[in-house]
Design a binder for these strands. Structure first.
Lengths: 188, 188, 188, 188
DNA sequence: AATGAATGAGGATTCATTCAT
DNA sequence: GATGAATGAATCCTCATTCAT
């Protein structure tokens, strides 16, 4: 029972946090959305903080899995870069709900060490994945290029979080790929 | 007296929101930081929501003023673009505190129409300013270029909000300018 | 199985109540200390109240047994008095844990009739045992002397409950015997 | 306003703790008894713990004042002893409510350092006051005598807490004085 | 204009207890 | 007999907001 309940709670937490645009979400509400009573949520997670941390962890690990799975099928540097970009804008990760929750956690990271730690890992992994693809193609400028690409991805997320249209990642992805072409072309 | 008090409250609200990373900031705390009692803050703003809206408005209008002042001295398309970028990363707007608060408001905008409206205006103005500079230089691709530049700026903000080092905008600004060169060079 | 489980629960209850210094002890905790689940404790005792009453009853009946056993070997009035005092400060009854729990129950007796009843029986028996020894030696003053001796014993308990040193009853017992000598000497 | 409210809360806390026989008393109940809302009680004391500590402090300091006032009028060793005993059983200190609350705090002292500290001071002061009176009269045995007198006083408290009759201290006081006579007579 | 005083509403958390298995 | 699962009830505490002064 435990894994089922925990998964339901994490999913509900992401949904509610996204909708509220903040962590000012009552445990009771999350629990009800997940189909159980508030005390049960406490029983499984021990408290609000732990639940939200689990939620952020879930988002980041789903993203990490998508990246890994994409990289597994990539055999050239350029393919690696495309894989990272593709994963960033793929369906389960670019869902508006998920992006909105991610953003809330992002902001909280300033003051909550646990969130900050998680985000550092995300940033470091993203950067190293991009670097691995860029270095063979760009050489010395790879660091700056990776930073810029990372910022672009994050920026697209930020805008998607506020978009009216049910943001598909397709457009954002195309824009990024076009830009990547530009950067690689200039480097050659 | 009133304008002084209100300005103090707005400033305190930005500082506290930035520090908390959310709107979960008590009126009493904001009021105390501003050197007055909680009821007085209510007296001046009528409530928590109105105070925070005023705070966001203050951030955006300070930014708007910086942009306008930069544009006033720009006489070529490229100078206009540089002016917008320069304003985005200039001291009072790129202060960590201000960025953090801006981000909190940004996230809230998903569900709070008042914030959403303010943000729309910011986005629209930024886009139209960039477009005005880009169209003479890039032609048809100006729309996509403006969107990408906007996303890059927001992405840099996002990352600055989490940076350890007391982020100066200088690096971010340089990176953006370099990128702008790239985009303009490719278009020619 | 039942008597073993019940005894374990009673023992655990005494230990936990002593440590907490109050009845604010969760059933779950007591049950866990006794090596079983909370529902099982309920099954055996029907509820928290009944468990704690059983615990107090256990303390008093252990004490009662010690007194009876001492009296069985006493053949003079003075020996009877010594037997009662000896039992009061003997090892299993004067254990810090037991005293602390006893005190908690004592205080609760003000408002919980079940505890009050138990305590009345203890007081009455103590008094009658002391009287039986004192009357032949002191005559008319036996009543007051018994009350005073009883108060002294309780007072020693009270102080032992708070002592730092792992209170042996030896000192307290010696002090009481010395005092008894005094009272008997004065009466002759 | 503050001192009035605080005094009312302390008084109510003593009454409710005495009645409940434990600290399991809700803030709301105490506040209502004191004629105000629960949040106000929090406002003035900051929390349940602080309120109860203030209550115990109040009991002990009232007792301390009574002792000091009695000693001020005593000019012989025996008069000093009588003053201490008299204060211990005087009206405001020997009120059933006060005794019951004192006992609850006493028991809690085992695990709550703040209470423990307060009680240590009480015990030390009582002992030193008794010693000052006993040493000139009893000499070497003064220490043991002081301990025994202290235990007797505490024992009388313990029994008064459970008495049915609205315990006047008169009887207890007379018994203690009689005993003191005995001890002093034996020493001469 | 300014604030100390006060509270209603609400939220996290704990716990005794029940029940299906 | 024994327990994991589950919850209603209750408690401490916080906070935006009101009001008399």
């Amino acid at each position: 029972m435990e894994p089922i309940r925990k998964a339901a709670l994490v999913k509900a937490a992401i949904a509610e946090v996204a909708q509220a645009g903040s962590l000012e979400v009552t445990m009771a509400r999350v629990a009800r959305t997940a189909g159980m009573s508030a005390p049960l949520a406490h029983h499984y997670f021990g408290g609000k903080d732990a639940l939200f941390e689990a939620a952020m962890r879930a988002i980041l690990s789903e993203y990490g899995a998508a990246v890994r799975s994409g990289l597994a099928r990539a055999d050239t540097p350029r393919a690696r870069l495309d894989a990272v970009i593709g994963a960033s804008f793929s369906a389960p990760n670019f869902a508006p709900e998920v992006i909105a929750a991610w953003l809330v956690f992002y902001v909280q990271a300033r003051e909550r060490p646990a969130f900050r730690r998680l985000l550092r890992v995300y940033h470091a992994r993203l950067r190293s994945n991009l670097l691995a693809g860029l270095r063979p193609l760009v050489g010395a400028g790879a660091g700056a290029a990776a930073d810029m690409l990372g910022a672009m991805i994050d920026g697209q997320y930020l805008r998607a979080a506020l978009s009216d249209r049910p943001a598909t990642g397709a457009e954002a992805e195309a824009a990024l790929r076009a830009h990547l072409d530009l950067m690689l072309g200039a480097a050659r």
